[in-house]
Nucleic acid binder design. Sequence first.
DNA 1: TTCACAAATTCACATATGTAAATATATATA
DNA 2: TATATATATTTACATATGTGAATTTGTGAA
Lengths: 95, 95
Amino acid sequence: MSNVDEMSDMFKALSDPMRLKVLKLLPKHGEEKELCVCALADELGISQPNVSHHLKILKSVGLVKCAKHEGFSYYAVNMDKIKCLFDDLQNEIEK
Amino acid sequence: MSNVDEMSDMFKALSDPMRLKVLKLLPKHGEEKELCVCALADELGISQPNVSHHLKILKSVGLVKCAKHEGFSYYAVNMDKIKCLFDDLQNEIEK
DNA sequence: TTCACAAATTCACATATGTAAATATATATA
DNA sequence: TATATATATTTACATATGTGAATTTGTGAA
């Protein structure tokens, strides 16, 4: 990655409390837990379009991945991406 | 204040390309390198008030520390804070 | 095909943010 | 003290952002 624009976009995706709550609820990549978007909306107390909007932002920077089956969308956190982001940040500003 | 609010504030501070460039230029806590605000402005090609503004945001969340002597302000990156942020993020969303 | 439901998109609007310009404050030196 | 310089604050404004409401798209079942 190693460019400040990409990194700032990822930090911007993480800079909203509701999106952090979304990440907290979502299963991590590989886990068998599954939550559809409407269940997320219910759990978070916000509208379904709002959840979709936040998920779109998280997905646009690769922080979550989406799989669809039986009419539902199941999102999962991409933990590797988060680890990479922090490694890149340290490399970028420490060297 | 809940944990996600504090964390999102720190991510927001990191979500601007110019602020990442500031962190890249600043010495890390403990280094002997020193850069005054006007030198930063010169290096970044932006105005001095703009640099002060970005530094204020970084300082408000503890990502940089400031020391003054001989009329100059010298800022330094607080790397520990960054490490803590990532540990907290992982603890928050992985458990 | 039709219907029902899940998810995404669009629109509207209030709030937040980054930046330039002007001004104010602080500090060192003469 | 007065003056020059470094830094911080204020103001203004255009753009970006988060959210609700309404709508649209997509998908599976009947």
